[in-house]
Design a protein around this nucleic acid. Structure first.
Lengths: 174, 174
DNA sequence: CGCCGAGTTGAACTGAATCAAGAAACGTGG
DNA sequence: CCACGTTTCTTGATTCAGTTCAACTCGGCG
């Protein structure tokens, strides 16, 4: 990325500390931000038949956003909250977007970000389709061993697409 | 899109007619093309435990590509074949990509394409996670009633993530 | 005609959901 | 620092959607 573009991006970022249970974004609103996680854990979730369903955990080094709103400009169906006290860098996409025409590299940045998200979703989909509940749990355990101790079981369960009861039983036999 | 960019894109496209069972692309190779379907049906699939799994059907007006290879530049794990004789427009991504720097709008085009694919995948994932086999079948039936008569049952089954037997039973009670 | 691929049907099995209670852990005010 | 209620987690019994395996039907077509 060139200097000029870097400076613009920097100007669109703000850092903040957020606490467990803080809600960074609610469904039904347009959301033009996305968050980089420096430390802590964020969660992206939505409601399905009155129940929370976790779409995504953002651990250290990952991003969380109302990706539907960001992509389409419409109202998001996601909520974002804080699972573990976190320090985050929030990118104000408005500023980025307004400058697309003047900063060609931003388009690339946007493209790569979406691509990244696509590949992650693809992975997750294959995980759910091809692996049993137990394999999914073990996989996540391998990827994020520390984090798992800090995430309530019901959040985890909906992320892994099993009931809380099943997840509890899986976990027992270890 | 401006004239200049339009002309470049046009230069990167070729039209062809393809026949049922033709294989447009095999896994293990790098693929730098994607296909627009003017008529007919293409299928993107891969192998899982020795069995074909359909990742995607491209009906009229849709696109088919080895999206992993296109995004990452690596070898694809997908095959693309022809389910129903088709006329397709093939975009040679190489040419597009080489011109990213000179044609800023191409980055946007790329971004929007990935975005489109992301949203489709998200939809599909939710379909599989939240709906029963029967609901998934009915949904596809609603979306592509004509096409379904032309697609072999086993292709359909793996796309819907059920066994052929189950799909046959679902279909019976109509 | 007989074979072959595509689809159907049946019976047994299984992973995970659901429903229903409890047990533990947690935090908040007294 | 304890008591109390709430939230989180566990356990058991039952049910169910969908799989698996195996056999069978049907419509071409060489």
């Amino acid at each position: 990325m060139d200097e000029r573009t870097g400076a613009l991006v920097k100007s669109a970022v703000s850092v903040s500390d957020v606490k467990r249970k803080d809600i960074l974004h609610a469904a039904g609103t347009v959301c033009r931000k996305f968050h980089f996680v420096e430390s802590g854990i964020l969660r992206v979730f939505y409601y399905k038949d009155g129940k929370e369903v976790t779409a995504w955990f953002a651990f250290k080094g990952m991003t969380a956003s109302c990706i539907d709103s960001l992509f389409t400009g419409g109202e998001t169906s996601y909520y974002i909250d804080v699972v573990e006290d976190a320090t985050i860098h929030t990118i104000h996409y408005d500023i980025i977007e307004r400058s697309f025409a003047d900063y060609p590299l931003l388009e690339r940045l946007g493209r790569l970000m979406v691509t990244e998200n696509y590949l992650l979703l693809d992975q997750r989909m294959k995980m759910i389709v091809f692996h049993s509940a137990e394999e999914r749990y073990n996989n996540l355990l391998r990827a994020e061993p520390l984090a798992l101790q800090k995430i309530p079981l019901n959040y985890l369960a909906s992320y892994l697409n099993v009931t809380q009861e099943t997840l509890s039983r899986i976990r027992r036999q270890k």
